[in-house]
Design a protein around this nucleic acid. Sequence first.
DNA 1: CGTGAACCTGAGAGAACGCTGAGAATCTCT
DNA 2: AGAGATTCTCAGCGTTCTCTCAGGTTCACG
Lengths: 237, 237
Amino acid sequence: MVIRSAIEGSSRMRVLVVEDEVRLASYLKRGLEAEGYAVDIAATGTDGLWMATEQTYDAMLLDIMLPGMNGYKVCEELRQKGNWVPILMLTAKDGEYDEAEALDTGADDFLSKPFSFVVLLARLRALLRRGSAERPPVLATGDLTLDPSSRVVARGGVQIDLTPREYALLEFLMRHPGEVLPKRDIIEHVWDWEFEGDPNIVEVYVGYLRKKIDVPFGCDLLKTVRGAGYRLDPSNG
Amino acid sequence: MVIRSAIEGSSRMRVLVVEDEVRLASYLKRGLEAEGYAVDIAATGTDGLWMATEQTYDAMLLDIMLPGMNGYKVCEELRQKGNWVPILMLTAKDGEYDEAEALDTGADDFLSKPFSFVVLLARLRALLRRGSAERPPVLATGDLTLDPSSRVVARGGVQIDLTPREYALLEFLMRHPGEVLPKRDIIEHVWDWEFEGDPNIVEVYVGYLRKKIDVPFGCDLLKTVRGAGYRLDPSNG
DNA sequence: CGTGAACCTGAGAGAACGCTGAGAATCTCT
DNA sequence: AGAGATTCTCAGCGTTCTCTCAGGTTCACG
């Protein structure tokens, strides 16, 4: 069975997600589609293998632990058939399955759970970029710039040091400039997909970010929209 | 089998509402149809599951507490069958049912009762928009503009700050320009659908809005239609 | 012109919301 | 192991928002 949520005529990147855990699958589908990818889901290894051979995808997210046929096997068989679609493997943290083994079987990259969505996107972009020899564009909002490839953030030429979490938050905001982003969405993207802590964490990190990107420059790029979320506002340089 | 969640400009979006409480179901049907959606109703979980598999919907509103088969189960079975129609779950506030669990079973989003219709519409639009990578259009009435994605309201280029409630009210009015909207309808859409307070609340908030969007500009966009309701009048710039 | 219904508005209580500093827990690197 | 960086939790605080209420104003109509 093939399930496609496709928009005909558009040239969106197509991604196949092979994941049996419904919640994670649904989360990945939601998040990736919001980023403009066309996403198909397969719940078992055999389904995934079949879909990957029947259709053409730009990339594949492949869980290792799958019912029926595990991720290694799927990867191996695909490569044997001469299918070299870029594969990003999702490995559990507990070490039962090995990351080296993932690469052995022909995976291009791996990501260990739990991961934040922003990190997943970064890896996926890197995979898709490969072969096209394109460097990711530098993000800019006002005089604030962020270079995803070097992870350098600067404001008006002055480089700014950020911690990983601060960086992930800023990258997410800068990829949606001018948009109001609810705390809920921010948590889903910047923290683990199943983070269940206090949304206050967002307020805290917004505070940290402001201290580094706004306060020293005496302005107010990162706005609070009370009752709705936060917004990176290009208008106020 | 190919299932497509297509965005078709020409035909109306089809929404399946699975809700046993007759009054709420009827309210949702009326409200959504007024917004241009084609709405089907299922009163039990089994009915809902059957309709969702037989027909193709663009989205699904799914109550959790249902006779026969609860919302979690419906969602789970649909996902198992490979049906990834966007699902917005309606959860009761009392915490007996968990929001995390809703996402566990593969729901795309959830909304806890009581909710305002404007919020429901916003979430529904977000679900439908997903995958089309389109930003919602800016609403405009005369020289008054409202951008749902940035939540920015402006009049003749001058930005206007609104509280969440004021914003919801204005958005509702601006989605029905030139129409006379009875207080009752406004309460149903902008407040809870079973709000039972004083209708005076509408007068109060209309007053707040006027102070921000009309008074400073010396005109009268937001009209009172005595005995009938309120109207946002594009003619009077 | 008087009357009642509908509408407007200012004041204020209580709740919700967001910000912040302190400090605990965890991670990283030497 | 130890130092420092980073992440996260928590409680307190001030602000903002929501909603109610009571009294005032406007309007339609007899």
